[in-house]
């Protein structure tokens, strides 16, 4: 795997950069190219030159005027924030119960979570869809948010280990001071696992933001849709205005990428601590 050891260190180092830079470029290429294209004028859109010159913001202006970006982003933000908040509440309460209040339930409940995680969403989507429409939640944020709380299993698996890492003596000390369980959770456990909550929350937020199938079924109409549905429809309709399409794609993806890159250290830490280094 590493014939590099036999080479001179400088050469090995150069090779290291070469491989990683190449891989990084390949992995980030589609988004990078989208970003560059979004600044190109209509005559340069297909130009193989990577540099957008002359650069223009026309594409963004076109998208912002013809596409309900604000509404789509708003819908998606409400959905993602709702799902993240809901899953965090579920996971924190469950984690506290499984570590502090009813540790005996822990293996069984965590197994149920693992199995739920492995179920492919498409395999159970018809009953989910039927139930949601029967509840009258089509084309509503409720219909977008509540069914997606079923995927809380990952948040539970990630957070339960963090709750378990809170020193038991602190929890006992709080109880001896007269704290009720909910007060122990609020005053002792929550502050201790705040970084993990933030990391898991961001992870769920991003996953939900990128969700495609469920919003496609529940809220396909343009004014209830999420950015993913909007983007897919935009691509279907205005398929030839690639500059504007790339601008739309960048507008809906870049904020998420930036948030992730800033938070990635924390997210990885939460994976490590959760023992999800499988």
């Amino acid at each position: 795997m590493h014939p590099t050891d036999r080479l001179r260190p400088a050469v090995a180092h150069a090779l290291w950069h070469l491989v990683l830079a190449g891989a990084s470029l390949a992995m980030a290429f589609p988004m990078l190219w989208s970003l560059l294209t979004s600044f190109k004028g209509p005559q340069d859109v297909f130009s193989p030159s990577p540099l957008p010159w002359p650069a223009t913001l026309d594409n963004y202006a076109a998208v912002l005027s013809s596409w309900p970006v604000g509404m789509l982003v708003g819908n998606t933000f409400i959905m993602s924030a709702g799902v993240a908040a809901g899953q965090l509440v579920i996971a924190v309460l469950a984690g506290f119960a499984l570590v502090v209040l009813a540790p005996r339930m822990r293996p069984a409940v965590l197994s149920a979570c693992t199995i739920a995680l492995a179920v492919p969403p498409q395999a159970i989507i018809i009953p989910q869809f039927l139930l949601t429409t029967r509840l009258g939640w089509q084309n509503s944020e409720l219909g977008l948010i509540v069914p997606q709380l079923g995927t809380s299993a990952l948040a539970v698996l990630l957070l339960v280990e963090h709750v378990a890492a809170v020193p038991a003596a602190q929890i006992e000390a709080a109880a001896l001071q007269g704290a009720r369980p909910i007060e122990t959770l609020w005053h002792v456990v929550l502050p201790a696992i705040r970084p993990a909550i933030l990391a898991v929350g961001i992870l769920v937020f991003i996953t939900t933001w990128n969700e495609y199938l469920w919003p496609l079924l529940i809220a396909p109409r343009s004014h209830d849709a999420t950015v993913q549905i909007g983007l897919a429809q935009f691509q279907g309709e205005g398929g030839t205005d690639y500059g504007a399409l790339m601008a739309a794609s960048v507008l809906t993806s870049l904020p998420i990428v930036v948030v992730y890159i800033i938070a990635s250290r924390r997210i990885i830490d939460s994976f490590i601590k959760a023992g999800l280094r499988p």
Partner: peptide, 19 residues
């Protein structure tokens, strides 16, 4: 129940609330 007994405890590693 805990907290209803009129007692307090000092833990071995003190169990102070760090935040």
């Amino acid at each position: 129940p805990l907290g209803a007994r009129d007692l307090a405890m000092v833990f071995q590693d003190y169990a102070l609330f760090p935040h």
